[in-house]
Structure formats: C-alpha cells, structure tokens
Amino acid sequence: MQYVNLGRTGLKVSRLCLGTMNFGDATDEQTAYQIMDKAIETGVNFFDSADVYGGPQTPDMEKGFGTSEEIIGRWLEKSGKRNDIVLATKCYQPMGLGPNDRRLSAYHIRQACEDSLRRLKTDRIDLYQMHHIDRTTPWEEIWQAMELLVQQGKVLYIGSSNFAGWDIATAQGMARQRNFMGLVSEQSLYNLTVRALELEVIPACRHYGLGLIPWSPIG
C-alpha cells in the first residue's frame, strides 16, 4: 500500500480510502466487519463515513439513519483498531425534522459532532468534513465553531466535500484571517466520465494545499 500526506498536512493516509456509505444499507453489519478487517490487513488506514450514511439519508425515515457510523463504532470497539486508522466523517445533511437539524450553523455543527462521536464510539474525529457548502451561514460562524472543536481535541483536521473552487478560496481566505489552518482536503465526485473538477476545483486544491479525495472514482 502507498501512503501519502493528506494535502499540506503531516498526516499519512493510504492512497486508497475505504468508503462506508453502504454500511447498514446494501452491506449488512457482519459483511462490513469483514470489509474493514480486510482493509486493515491490506494496509488501508483511511476510513470515510458521514452522519447520514447507512440508510435513506433523510430524517423522514427512522430506519437505518446514522447506521454507518454506528457499525464503524461497534467494529472499532470490538477490534481495538482505533489508533490504526484515520477516521473521517461529515456533517451538514438533515439529521432531524427541526430547522436547526441541518446545514452548518454553529448550533448544528456542535450537535452533529457530538452525535457522530457517540455513534463512532471515539473521542475524536480525525477529518471532519463539511458535506456541502452552506451559503446561508457566514464563514466567521463556521470557522469559530470548527476552531472550538479543534481546541477541545474532538476534531483534528477540517475538510470540505462537494465545494466549488470559489467556495474553497473563500473558506481559505477567511481561515487565514483568523490564523486558522482551514481546509486540508476536498472530497468530490471525480472519475473518467465526470471531470469538471479539472477546471477550477483541482487548481484551487493545488493552490491552497488541499488533498483531493475522489468519491465514486470508478463511476
């Protein structure tokens, strides 16, 4: 297995990242355990999830909501492999029916992080990613909330997902004003048939030192 630095950080991650969106949905718990065991065996140390993974990804349906993180948490507790992996998850998507159960307000970021920590049965999230851009919440508020999580040791690095190049530039400009590291990675749809990232997102990642995590890389 090849290992590379995640963007401009000193963190080493495997070139291959294990995505867990289907854990609890298309993939049952025992099969998910086998997949994670095999990933560790082959040298994969980078696991990616999200608070909405493992079910319909809508708060209107109770069954399966947040299941991916719960399965990973039980596997971590059983295997004792927490310190062998770089654990990534995400927030933004609706996690309830209330008006503040979604997006990137400081209110929701704090609650979403606490809930993910509980489901994952861990004291920290190594890479906490904003699942989508939130243009209704100011970056001053978002970064203040993220800075607090970093200060508390609940989050180590911050990433984005599905951001445009302009969003990355705006985020990093505001982070620099606050003397904060800001984003270290961007996770986007990228494969041989979907290459729009090459126009602006990849140049932005290169300019600001963000690692690129393609999702659905084989389409």
Rank of each mutant, 00 (worst) to 15 (best):
P203E: 02
S188F: 01
L189A: 11
V86C: 06
T136E: 14
D134T: 02
I40T: 02
G24E: 07
L117C: 10
R102V: 03
V13H: 05
S160F: 01
L192N: 01
G153C: 04
E41K: 13
Y128Q: 09
Y190F: 04
K154I: 10
K63D: 11
I218F: 11
V86M: 08
M181G: 14
D101K: 02
S14Y: 12
Q2R: 11
R118N: 08
S14G: 10
I71W: 11
L212C: 04
A171N: 13
G64R: 12
K90G: 05
G10F: 05
G73N: 07
R206Q: 14
S79V: 04
R15A: 15
I168K: 01
G66Q: 08
N5W: 03
Q151V: 06
K81L: 03
R195H: 06
Y3H: 08
M61W: 13
I71P: 11
N5M: 06
S161N: 12
H108Q: 02
S49M: 03
A169Q: 00
T122W: 05
C205E: 10
Q151P: 07
F23E: 14
K81E: 04
N83Y: 09
D28Q: 12
E70L: 05
E147N: 10
G66S: 07
K63F: 07
Q93P: 04
M36D: 13
E69R: 04
A106T: 07
L120V: 00
I35F: 09
I142P: 01
L6A: 10
I71T: 11
A175Q: 04
T58V: 14
L212V: 07
I202W: 03
Y107A: 12
H131P: 01
Q144T: 15
L212K: 00
E62S: 08
D60C: 11
N83G: 08
S68Y: 11
M36P: 12
G211L: 08
P138T: 13
R178A: 15
R15H: 13
Q177K: 12
D28R: 08
R103S: 14
T170A: 10
R15I: 15
A26Y: 08
V13C: 11
I142T: 15
F163E: 03
T170N: 10
M146R: 07
L197W: 01
E200D: 15
G182W: 10
R135M: 06
L199T: 11
S49C: 10
L6D: 12
S161D: 14
Y53P: 10
W75Q: 12
E62R: 05
L189M: 09
Q151M: 14
A106R: 12
V155H: 09
W143D: 15
L199G: 02
K38E: 05
S68R: 04
T20D: 07
N5C: 14
E140Q: 12
G66A: 02
E186K: 02
L197I: 13
S185T: 13
